[in-house]
Design a protein around this nucleic acid. Structure first.
Length: 933
RNA sequence: GCGGGGGUACCCGAGCGGUCAAAGGGGCAGGGCUUAGGACCCUGUGGCGUAGGCCUUCGAGGGUUCAAAUCCCUUCCCCCGCACCA
């Protein structure tokens, strides 16, 4: 029986003790592959293994194809995840402890994980020992590194100094999510730092200052251009408003807004004066730019938690305002200021159309708002009520009105989330303005252009991403690259106590793998890794201070650049772009990355990405135990294309496990066969050789799935057919299986090794060369003949099924010679690009001996012409094969397959051949006439 | 808004101009094996057909082509990313 874990342990231990995985400099072509290193945030799950497995399969294939492969890995320890895990352990958070236990964390380890460094040490060891090694990955473990090691930090410092020298570090104001308790937080879908609001977007509200005596009502809007259509201001009568002083002005805003504005505007003074909303109602204020007076009216939809809590009302264009105005019963007419087709007063129109009656009907109102907004944005033009802006398209006006308001101190800016965001500590997350934030200037024109051009020369999988990536580079803007707070990472060299953020310290890192093993072996110490050292190693500047510098430089020169960087689709818009741009910015062109491979995700049955917070994550050791590593590897490689999401389903995994077992048994059965040569042998060799050709081509293009289909399914089928056809050549089978195992080795290495050894081979199949196409073995005729046989059996079977005849005798008439002649002539003409029906007939009749077939020739020429339009037809018809003799040879087999006692085979060109069914005339090349009786 | 992807038989998923009624799995049906069940192995799985064929299908509607699931246009629907999350 096949014991997966036993052979896994056996071969893994042998590979690693014999150091199959270690990358050493050599004379061969090098191949450098790595995957986007995982962040240290806890246990990984089966979803992560998908990409890692692809990397290992590719690395193994390249190794077997004669490349000297370097496949390093590391850990991204920067940022918050490790800290937050440690904090949760320290707090004895129940969920966290439970999660650790469930994943098999030893009880004595758990308390130690309240320390961040312990988290990093523990999990990096788990990743290596429990995941990567258990999957048999031939990662060069002597190069492991983490982003918070002293050597790496030296490397990052050097990188930022270089960026600064290149004028790619700039300073400007920035708005960032911020928790008053915890400092900067990340707002993202996976909700790492927050407990609510992962879908929030950052919106830019324009504050429009409506004046009321000496007071300012800063109404917040996303559509400043509609200021011309304001008819009133909405105040929530149930809300207590607060007065604040802003640059000598007195503003009225909601209480919630005070905190937010203080984080964004300097010099805000909070007064103790409050004013209830209902006291404001009925007063009047002035619309800026127009100097019209409008009243303050009550509206319950005005939410004090959103922006300033003061809303300007544009009933002609905002459905909410329109409905609220109707409900207020005020005698105020909407002022339509934007013309669009189909509406005179858009908000009124859509409310009537959708039957909206109340401002509480928020679902419909949201829909109406969206529809009107889209229409107005795309088709709308400001009308004459807008003074000097009349005639301008809405899509162009927004910023102009906003800037005009700002320039004349009639407005301001407020950044706000589209929904409430809650920090994990319980506090509401706000947006803070950092006046002098440091950025990496990814908007740099020259850098963008060079990067885009380089991308166009790269190997990118999937192909579509190549174009997408160039577009991403176009809109990729400057990135805030440092933060203040308790984060793991490298200190920023130009601003004390600020730390480089986790994306920015993970861009050039594969270069560090070319020297990490020297650090690990203590051949160089972190404090020796000065800027001069990196200048020398990476840029060839200066002179080496020590011999080891030369050695390290040699390693870098040999292995770099990256041939493939492999990562999940989540990296498409951030990691991969910065990975490329930093290389382009800092290194010479010959060191720029050559390839990117993007893999999609494993999702839960519902289509949700598997994640720790959303659940559904199957722990890796459990899956290894249940299904076995080789089945898992084959599953990843074969279940679907690498560039599409797939749901994790137990049944599917079981299926792959069975598939491996079947192959295991099948191979063993084949090896038991002790016969000698048969005529079908040649077909087997030729077919396998054709498969090898195909598999190599697919693998060279990183089509792992397609290659796996042929290795595990097509070759299997071919061998099955061989056996059915009576093949039993022991020596040939052994040699074919040897080849087959080598094709499997990158995908399912353990089982391949195990059989390899059982067959008495020495060494590792993993270090053998990958099977290569042998042109001498290519023989289309052999394949065509066998296909003829299959076709004949298929046809007979179909006839039997349709007619329900139990045949006592079958007549086969193979194609008359003249039809073959015409077929080969057609191929000839096709090859010369001269194939037309008339050319074909002319060529044909040029031969006097063929004139006798004039009557049928024209019809057959038409048919042949049609067949030849198929590009694969040429190789099939190019060489005439002796159909009759092949069928004669295989007659016994056909009889068996179709269950017929007697088969008589003739050539249709033979006038004396009996033709009881009058079928002879339909015989064509590779389609013999068939008659049953 | 910007950018990307996708809609394929009962289901999951390949295919991305000719070998396509469409790989591979699952499910279902029949047969073999077995004391029985499971596992395993065959066969079938759009419709019609007493001759290897014909007809209809790859979201919908048009078009290009000798030939389209595959290319183009229009249209409907779904999914994803948009930045301090790696």
């Amino acid at each position: 029986m096949l014991d997966f874990s036993k052979i896994e342990e056996k071969w893994q231990s042998r590979w690693f003790t014999e150091e199959v995985h270690i990358a050493k400099l050599g004379p061969q072509k090098k191949y450098f592959i790595h995957f986007a290193y995982p962040g240290i945030s806890g246990y990984l799950h089966v979803g992560h293994m998908r990409g890692f497995t692809y990397a290992d399969i590719i690395a193994r294939f390249k190794k077997m194809s004669g490349y000297n492969v370097c496949f390093p890995a590391g850990f991204h320890a920067s940022g918050l995840p490790a800290i937050s895990l440690a904090k949760r352990v320290a707090r004895k958070n129940k969920q966290t402890i439970g999660y650790l236990k469930e994943n098999g964390c030893p009880p004595e380890i758990i308390p130690t994980l309240s320390n961040t460094n312990a988290v990093i040490d523990y999990f990096s060891q788990v990743y290596v020992e429990d995941y990567w090694k258990k999957f048999g990955f031939l990662i060069d473990y002597s190069r492991l590194m983490t982003t918070i090691s002293p050597g790496y930090q030296k490397f990052i410092e050097w990188q930022f100094k270089k960026l600064n020298e290149k004028k790619l570090l700039i300073q400007k104001p920035h708005f960032a999510p911020f928790c008053p308790n915890c400092g900067p937080v990340a707002v993202d879908k996976s909700e790492t730092d927050i407990s609510q609001g992962g879908n929030a977007e950052v919106l830019e509200f324009t504050l429009i200052k409506f004046r009321m005596d000496d007071l300012v009502l800063p109404a917040a809007t996303l559509r400043p251009e509609t200021v011309f259509g304001v008819t009133n201001i909405w105040i929530n009568p149930t809300v207590e408003y607060t007065k604040i002083r802003v640059n000598g002005e007195k503003w009225i805003v909601s209480k919630d807004a005070v905190k937010k504005l203080s984080a964004q505007i300097e010099n805000i003074q909070i007064t103790n004066e409050t004013i209830p909303g209902n006291k404001l109602i009925g007063k009047k204020c002035t619309v800026p730019l127009l100097d019209r007076e409008v009243p303050l009216l009550p509206a319950t939809f005005t939410d004090p938690k959103i922006a300033t809590g003061i809303v300007m009302s544009v009933p002609a264009h905002a459905p909410y305002d329109y409905v609220a105005l109707k409900e207020s019963k005020e005698n105020i007419q909407p002022r339509a200021i934007i013309d669009i087709k189909g509406y005179t007063i858009p908000a009124e129109g859509i409310c009537k159309k959708m039957g909206i009656k109340s401002q509480k009907d928020t679902e419909k109102l949201d829909k109406a708002t969206e529809e009107i907004y889209k229409k107005e944005f795309h088709q709308g033009v400001l009308n004459k009520k807008c003074g000097k802006y009349a005639g301008i398209k809405v899509s162009e006006i927004k910023d102009r009105v906003k800037n005009n308001l700002l320039d004349t101190n009639k407005g301001g800016i407020m950044m706000e989330f589209s929904e409430q965001v809650q920090c994990r500590c319980g506090e509401t997350v706000i947006i803070k303005k950092i006046p002098d934030q440091w950025f990496i200037k990814y908007s740099d024109k020259d850098l963008t252009l060079k990067s885009k051009h380089h991308v166009s020369t790269m190997n990118i999988y999937p192909q579509e991403y190549k174009e997408e990536l160039q577009k991403v580079l176009d809109w990729f803007d400057d990135r805030a690259c440092i933060r203040k707070g308790s984060w793991l990472g490298t200190g920023f060299p130009f601003k004390k106590s600020w730390i480089i953020e986790p994306i920015s310290d993970s861009t050039l890192y594969p270069a560090y793998y070319t020297l990490s093993q020297y650090v690990n072996q203590k051949k160089i110490k972190a404090d020796e890794m000065t800027p001069e050292f990196f200048d020398f190693v990476f840029l060839g500047k200066g002179t080496p201070k020590k011999q080891i510098w030369n050695e390290i430089k040699k390693s870098y020169d040999y292995w770099y650049p990256v041939d493939i960087n492999l990562g999940g689709k989540e990296h498409k818009t951030v990691h991969f772009p910065v990975f490329i741009m930093n290389h382009v910015a800092l290194l010479p062109p010959q060191k720029w990355p050559r390839g990117i491979f993007v893999n999609w995700w494993i999702t839960q049955t519902s289509g949700i990405k598997i994640s720790k917070s959303k659940g559904g994550a199957e722990p890796i050791p459990g899956a290894v135990h249940r299904y076995g590593v080789d089945p898992l590897r084959l599953y990843y490689a074969h279940v679907c294309s690498a560039h599409v999401d797939i749901e994790w389903e137990e049944k599917t995994l079981e299926q792959y496990k069975r598939k491996i077992i079947k192959i295991w048994r099948f191979v063993h059965n084949l090896l038991e066969i002790k016969g000698t040569a048969e005529s079908i042998d040649e077909w087997l060799s030729v077919s396998i050789n054709a498969e090898i050709n195909y598999i190599n081509k697919e693998l060279e293009n990183y089509h792992l799935r397609e290659a796996a289909t042929h290795i595990y399914f097509e070759i299997n089928k071919i061998l099955q057919w061989y056996i059915r056809r009576g093949g039993k050549n022991h020596d040939l089978l052994r040699s074919i299986i040897t080849t087959w195992l080598r094709t499997m080795a990158p995908f399912t290495p353990h089982i391949a090794e195990e059989i390899w050894e059982k067959m008495g081979n020495t060494g590792f199949v993993s270090t053998e060369t990958y099977p290569r196409y042998n042109p001498a073995l290519s023989n289309q005729k052999v394949l065509t003949k066998e296909n003829l046989l299959i076709q004949v059996i298929d046809d007979i079977s179909e006839i039997l099924e349709v007619t329900k005849i139990k045949p006592s005798r079958i007549y086969l008439h193979t194609s008359p010679p003249w039809k073959w002649t015409m077929a080969t002539m057609a191929c000839d003409l096709k090859e010369k690009g001269k194939l037309t029906i008339s050319n074909l007939l002319n060529t044909f009749f040029a031969r006097p001996d063929l004139k006798q077939h004039a009557q049928e020739a024209s019809r057959f020429a038409q048919k042949m012409y049609r067949i030849m339009q198929n590009p694969t037809a040429m190789e099939v018809y190019q060489q005439e094969i002796n159909e009759k003799s092949y069928l004669q040879e295989t007659k016994g087999f056909i009889k068996n397959m179709v269950n017929a006692p007697q088969i008589d085979i003739y050539n249709a060109g033979d006038d004396k051949a009996p033709d009881p069914g009058n079928k002879k005339k339909v015989a064509e090349p590779l389609r013999p006439a068939i008659y049953l009786e």
